[in-house]
Amino acid sequence: MYETHYHRASSVDDAAAQFANGSEAKYLSGGQTLLPVMKQRLAAPSDVIDLAKIPALIGIDFGGDSVTIRAATPHYDVASNEALQKALPALAALAGMIGDPAVRYRGTIGGSLANNDPAADYPAAVLALDATVKTNKRSITAADFFKGLFSTALEDGEIITAVTFPIPAKAGYAKFRHPASRFALTGVFVAQTKSGEVRVAATGASQNGVMRVPAIEQALKANWSAQALDGVSISADGLMADLHGAADYRANLIKVMAQRAVKDAA
């Protein structure tokens, strides 16, 4: 790792001020992406500004029809939150499928969304549930937030503070894990909103990162069941192809994971 300066921020404003002072600063949350990248000398921030101990960034709050997860809340705390397991079980289950227990103790939702890895899990939930990403400057809709591989609508120095998820009527998430890295080879989040709308998002599949899957949305809107997807075929255009799987393999995985997610939906 190259030399760097470590700062522990006491508040969101303090973090933003410290960021502005650094020549090439980066925020640090759980460090489960940034530190491996720094260890490999693929990133060399002049300063790392630790957000993880800022009290305002930690916790899970329930509103009438929504739940807000603050940015520095670790995956473990999301997965094990009993109120969330009741209100939005698919989201708690998704957090419990990220990486391994040690990664879940430290990795956070804010870090995962800011990083926007094309195979990360949280982006699928954010897009399918039409969540709102709150920052220290504004609120960003899910559709506007994700901008392709590893890129987001965040401006330089902007801090994600929380994510608000509307509580759906039903939702489910199924993921075909890469057996070594445990990232999604393809993961699909299905949601039926309280007004009857169906939204489906797939991660790990598209060359442009997380995406909606209209063909599956239409079929599930007509008939919310795994069988309704039997006849659906997903185009392989624009899907990732690598040594782990060809594009048409991923296209089929989208359908199969959607069927599993519907079966598990609650």
Binding site: R8, L28, L35, P101, A102, R106
Partner: peptide, 11 residues
């Protein structure tokens, strides 16, 4: 239980 290779001592 966390990975000490993926944690700065400052954290």
């Amino acid at each position: 239980a966390v990975k000490s290779c993926t944690t700065l001592v400052g954290q």
